[in-house]
Amino acid sequence: MIEFQDVTFVHQNGVKALDGVTLKIESGETVALVGENGAGKTTLVKHVTGLLKPASGRVLVDGQDTKATSTARLSRKVGVAFQNPDHQLFSESVEEEMSFALRNFGFPPEVVRNRVAWGLELFGLEEYRKSSPLVLSGGEKKRLTLACILAWDPDVVILDEPTVGQDSLQKERLAGTIKLLKSAEKTVVVVSHDIEFLWPIQPRVVVMKAGKVVGDGPAPRIMQDEALLASARVAQPQLVEFHRSLSSKPLEPFADALEARRWVEGAFRP
């Protein structure tokens, strides 16, 4: 469980990046963190693993105050995949890259071997086992960074803008991975602008604006709250907009195009 208790954080330049954030994420939840650039999403994420410490308030991970422990310890529980893979790939081979964290966390060699093999298979990277991570394409690099994190089996997985620069096939695969994590009862936090990507996942949505949490609830409720979305400069999913525009409609907006089609078939078929 992750808990933010009235957390405030001020950057060196005096900008208040977090302003009294109180937020509780239970284990097994899938949460989307949305808001415009500069709203404080990444700053919030960095507090979970103690990369940043609150100026006031507390951040608790499984009951432990992040101020009282180290990033290395917290990372064992919480895996964060940052936006830019080029900010972390450094090893001679893909295999080595995946082993890095596992060795840091002190896993025995045979476990390292097994986990690496598992990750390479899951993400379709086996053919690159011996290649340099730098020769991979953008999409492959992104998958590799995710594999690196899942390899140590953290309880919480945080993805920072996972869809940036990804084409639709890669996004589909990513959505599949998130479903897989969900079914494995992992806590998943996705920081993303990509509302169309988030909507079919139907996560709990936390909306941030100027360092504050301004909205928090299930996706259908938040995504139908137009005043909230407009003030936080968050786009509305197209299917929600479609639902809104219908004069007679079902209670809940459609989660995907197929669901919408089924309803239209029933309602409009002469």
């Binding site: 084409d167 996004k171 169309e196 999913p237 197209q238 299917l239 195009a257 089609r261």
Partner: peptide, 15 residues
């Protein structure tokens, strides 16, 4: 070919 069809276009196409 990995072209992201907007979801409303997907729906329009099916309908």
């Amino acid at each position: 070919y990995g072209v992201a069809t907007p979801s409303v276009t997907k729906l329009q196409k099916m309908l």
